[in-house]
């Protein structure tokens, strides 16, 4: 029955799942957004995520500390971002193609390393839900909160998330602030809209783009880590399975704005969570096809894209290498 969906348990379940599912998209998309705002399209996000996911997983498995794993993901992602920046900025290569190259590199390399260094799928003890922390530190706090009607539900949703989820959402206002309220943000936007003018005003387009693409790599690495040591706690070949490409699409979807990206990521994830619950509860839907449910997030995303088309403007220099004087 459809009404089964509107119970507290299910609503909490959908929100918990949706919020959690959006996490890797947020990291990757926000990072990608900076790159694109400065004029560089990085299609290698997926490959960087895979490398970050593996690095984080391996380090956490070896040293038992997820924070070290996260650091490893940051370094690996940063290096890959730097490589992408070198190809696209210094060498001025076609960005779409070089991005695919980086993706393939990440896919193959993470697979190779996984085969050589691990050989089999294992689980790891990554970041725990914050509720676990509170339950041990303040044993009386959670039960007390959970008993209160609305606050209890919210507490339940929040307590089930891990620190990486909080970081992802905290990132959104920070990204907004950097992009719209700092000189750096202005430089980034200038480099993406009119690199020649920015250059004329003394902004180093190359340096700005290096910074954003490297940042994008770091964020992609963290996005991968959020999967392998926070949400899933496993690593497998092609763990991300297309998540990175969806993250790139979400940047377009969000109109290159942090809150737009947040909206897109949440919409996509919430609808996905909803369809999981509809299936799990055996709720009859017309046509009785799980395929239709599985399509829901994608269909909805396309619908929103159609309606928002024309209201947002692509960064003018996106995808164009800048060569001074040309």
């Amino acid at each position: 029955m459809i009404s089964d969906l509107f119970t507290t348990t299910v609503l909490i379940g959908i929100l918990t799942s949706g919020i959690r599912l959006a996490t890797p998209y947020l990291f990757a998309s926000i990072g990608e957004m900076f790159g694109q705002r400065s004029g560089v399209l990085n299609l290698g996000v997926e490959g960087m995520m895979l490398m970050g996911a593996f690095a984080a997983f391996y380090v956490t498995l070896t040293y038992g500390n997820p924070w070290l794993g996260l650091l490893a993901a940051v370094i690996v992602g940063g290096v890959m971002g730097l490589a992408m920046a070198f190809i696209s900025v210094t060498l001025g290569a076609e960005q779409g193609i070089s991005g695919i190259g980086v993706y393939l590199f990440g896919l193959g390399m993470s697979d190779l390393l996984f085969q050589r260094m691990l050989g089999t799928v294992e689980t790891v003890r990554g970041f725990r839900p914050v509720g676990d922390f509170f339950a041990t530190q303040f044993p009386n706090l959670l039960p007390a909160l959970l008993a209160i009607p609305i606050i209890g539900s919210i507490t339940s949703i929040l307590a089930q998330q891990n620190i990486m989820v909080y970081l992802a959402y905290a990132l959104v206002p920070v990204a907004w602030f950097v992009l719209y309220r700092t000189t750096l943000g202005l430089k980034i936007r200038a480099a993406g809209e009119n690199p020649a003018a920015a250059d004329a005003l003394g902004v180093s387009v190359a340096r700005t783009r290096y910074a954003t693409v490297t940042l994008g790599g770091i964020m992609a690495g963290i996005a991968g880590a959020s999967l392998s040591i926070a949400l899933l706690n496993v690593f497998q070949q092609n763990l991300t399975s297309g998540l990175g490409f969806i993250a790139v699409a979400l940047v377009y979807f969000g109109g290159w704005r942090p809150y737009g990206v947040l909206f897109g990521a949440l919409l996509f994830s919430m609808v996905n969570a909803l369809q999981l619950w509809i299936q799990a509860l055996n709720i009859p839907i017309p046509f009785d096809a799980s395929e239709l449910l599985i399509m829901m997030p994608y269909v909805l995303t396309i619908v929103v894209l159609i309606f928002s088309a024309g209201r947002v403007r692509t960064p003018a220099a996106l995808g164009t290498p800048y060569e001074r004087g040309s």
């Binding site: 799942s17 959690r20 497998q236 399975s241």
Partner: peptide, 10 residues
Amino acid sequence: VALASEAANT
């Protein structure tokens, strides 16, 4: 894997 994991959570 991520969606499978979330389906299990569900």
